[in-house]
Design a protein around this nucleic acid. Structure first.
Lengths: 107, 107
DNA sequence: ATTAACTATTATTTAATACAATATACTAAG
DNA sequence: CTTAGTATATTGTATTAAATAATAGTTAAT
């Protein structure tokens, strides 16, 4: 799949997933991987960045079959950022649509 | 606007515009700028790259009020690439939608 | 012991856009 | 004539996010 399309959008997807409830990094990688190809280490940098900016808090929970899971919980600031970013996303794809669907653009 | 969202998509927009008829670089910048913010020099590198890959041919036409305009004409290869890329784009945004709209994701 | 599955982290590379400067041609204003 | 402004193309550098790939720790199974 087109790697470039994901720029900025993975961040949006992470925010969306965490707005639905706390998740740990590996779990996020798995759930987003169901919808698009995703390299294993990719999400951790996004998570770190968003946490550093105050959009998430984290806590550790012991795991039965591996190292402790680091859960991410979205903050109010994170929710506001998510709403804003989601709005921008939908506006953006509408504009792209307008460019792709201009007249004479048969097929 | 979110710069990252444009990654890969500007290329798609250029292909879409040229699939509707020949245009010169400045003209493309103007028409795409109507839908999204776009720095002045940005498109030229995209145009050069796509031309180098055989998706466009170019020709010069004298201009009344400035340097000669370099027109870009899409090739058959370019049209095929455009169809493929447009397909990937719509599949991609559908997958993103699926992630944003999963249950419990109220607002 | 070894392997495999689960989980986290991080250094390096790659690719596309933003930014900003340069250059050219022409027109209009002073 | 000179200067400013608009139209047009080109290119070097900076920024940023994802891919790649390597490292490492924990537990269970062979």
């Amino acid at each position: 799949m087109n790697t470039q399309f994901k720029k900025g959008v993975l961040e949006l997807c992470v925010l969306a997933q965490l707005s639905q409830g706390d998740k740990y990094g590996y779990e996020l990688t798995e759930s987003i991987s169901e919808k698009m190809t995703l390299a294993t280490g990719t999400l951790y940098l996004i998570l770190k960045r968003l946490k550093d900016e105050g959009y998430f808090e984290t806590y550790l929970v012991e795991s039965a079959g591996g190292p402790a899971r680091k859960y991410y919980r979205i903050s109010e600031k994170g929710r506001a950022y998510y709403r804003q970013m989601r709005k921008e996303w939908y506006e953006f794809i509408a504009q792209v649509d307008a460019l792709l669907k201009e007249p004479e653009n048969h097929d």
